[in-house]
Amino acid sequence: MDDVVEELGHEPNGYFWEGVARVLVDTEAAALEGRFSYDPEGGMFCAYGRDRGALEELGARMAVVATDADRMRRLVVAAEADGFEFDD
Rank of each mutant, 00 (worst) to 15 (best):
A63L: 12
D70Q: 06
R71E: 04
A21T: 13
A29L: 09
R73Y: 04
L58G: 14
L32M: 08
M44G: 13
R71D: 06
E18K: 14
V76P: 01
Y38G: 03
L55P: 14
D51K: 14
V25M: 06
A60H: 05
G53C: 03
R22V: 11
F36T: 01
D68V: 02
A21Q: 04
A78V: 01
D68Q: 02
E57S: 05
G83M: 05
V64S: 12
D70V: 11
W17P: 02
G34Q: 11
T27P: 09
V77H: 03
A31V: 02
G34E: 07
R50N: 15
E57C: 04
A79D: 06
V25F: 02
R74Q: 09
R35V: 12
V23K: 05
R61P: 15
T67I: 07
G59V: 10
A69W: 13
A21H: 01
A60C: 09
R35P: 08
A63K: 11
F36Y: 10
G34F: 14
R74A: 14
L32S: 07
L75Y: 01
V23Y: 12
R50E: 08
D26W: 05
G42E: 11
Y38F: 03
G83P: 01
R22F: 03
F36W: 04
A69L: 05
V25P: 05
R71Q: 12
M72H: 04
A79E: 01
G59M: 11
V76K: 04
G83H: 04
E33C: 10
T67Q: 15
A81H: 08
V65F: 13
R22H: 08
G19D: 00
V23N: 08
D82K: 00
L75R: 00
A78D: 03
V77L: 04
R35N: 09
V20Y: 01
G49A: 03
G59N: 13
G34P: 08
V64T: 13
L24S: 05
A69T: 13
R50V: 03
F45T: 02
A66T: 07
E41M: 05
Y38H: 06
L58C: 14
V77R: 14
L55Q: 10
E57V: 09
V23L: 13
D82A: 07
A81E: 14
A79N: 02
G43T: 08
D68W: 10
G43Y: 15
E57R: 02
V20L: 00
G19N: 00
Y38W: 06
V76Q: 03
C46M: 13
